[in-house]
Design a protein around this nucleic acid. Structure first.
Lengths: 123, 123
DNA sequence: TATTTTGTTCTACAAATGTAGAATTGAAAA
DNA sequence: TTTTCAATTCTACATTTGTAGAACAAAATA
């Protein structure tokens, strides 16, 4: 199953802050903070979908992500590539670099990442 | 506004086939083909959202996309980058290249695309 | 211990989405 | 011109999503 937009945003907090109690989750939101029940509902749904777990401490729970951001995001990207480029990653990559308009520095950085990867492939 | 999943899929047909009549749109679907009213509803909603237009021919309409796949997809990618990497395109790019596991050839291709872009930036 | 606070669950409800039947309209065929 | 047929619109309805009040339970505090 898939997370909804609001659930994804909450997930971001879980990824950033690691295991966290509900009050701190709410606290972490900018004003106007959502109602506690809103967060509770979202957390519940995310548990049902298998993305969130918790540990009980006294009367409250410490929530944590059950998927890494990398895993989750990787699936997303793959989904996008699949959907829009019939699975051609390089076609996507080339599109990506033109579409996102990186700065020269960013391009240089990216180039060295790629060179490194080529080296890894070769040995 | 944003297209929903089902709307995106329909959009794919519009991008692939270009201007197209409803009967051909339905025809293009694999079995079990959706009801004509389902497609009609989706097209209507897509028009309301500004993604689809049409030209009238006799009693029927030839539908066409009002956004290119590149534009639409580019916004998507930017949204993802924004959401997951706080707008650092290079961080995303680096993640992307590791996550999608390109072949050596693909990496070389990508590298030249990037080199080309660096040249463009420089002049 | 009685009271207040706080976390969690239940319930609710409007908006968006996926899907399609019923009705209508306009063109084509008889 | 009347009947037939296909395209479009209206209406509908279940599910998912965003949001939160009401109620309840447990812990902290007075």
């Amino acid at each position: 199953m898939q997370l909804s937009k609001a659930e994804e945003q909450l997930m971001e907090y879980l990824w950033r802050q690691g295991p966290i109690f509900m009050k701190d989750l709410i606290e972490a939101h900018p004003d106007p903070k959502p109602a506690a029940t809103t967060i509770a509902t979202l957390l519940k749904r995310m548990q049902d979908k298998g993305f969130v777990g918790y540990e009980t401490f006294g009367n409250s729970r410490q929530y944590h992500a059950l998927v890494t951001k990398e895993d989750y995001f990787g699936k997303h990207v793959k989904g996008l590539i699949q959907q829009f480029f019939g699975n051609s990653a390089s076609q996507f990559a080339s599109f990506f670099t033109t579409a996102t308009d990186l700065s020269e520095t960013e391009l240089e950085d990216l180039k060295s990442v790629i060179e490194q990867q080529i080296k890894n492939k070769q040995q």
